[in-house]
Amino acid sequence: MKKILLLFISLGILLAFSNEERFLFERLFQSLFNKKIIKIYTNKEGAKLIKKSRILKIVFTCDKADLILGIVDINCSKPVFVLNYYIYKNNSNVLGAFYWRKGRPQLRLRKNIIKKYKLNLSKDFEDFLE
């Protein structure tokens, strides 16, 4: 019984966090691209996070996308936002990252990449700039 209860709590938390991630992405990407609908080219992991979003639309070719979410095996000159700290750390071209540490969500953004793609950023996210 206790295990079932814990499982339900964990699932609830995951759902809550997945919603949290989606809202964060919506706000962040809307701020960056200054658009109502942002087209995302992503992998399975990224698609899971944003599939329910009405703002973030998944596209199946990189050319049509505004942003690449996660690591994709394709050469494309669109800004990349990753979901892993180590990928972010080891790739200086990556725009930003979102990952979890000990149940705490972490967001990182690179100022130079934002400038490179001539993107905007609202003041709400300035604290996360590196």
Binding site: W100, R104, F128
Partner: peptide
């Protein structure tokens, strides 16, 4: 002190607390 590499902080890793 975490043993899980996916959840372990790196030395000097930036950390955004809740």
């Amino acid at each position: 002190g975490s043993k899980n590499p996916l959840d372990r902080f790196e030395f000097d890793e930036k950390f955004e607390p809740r």
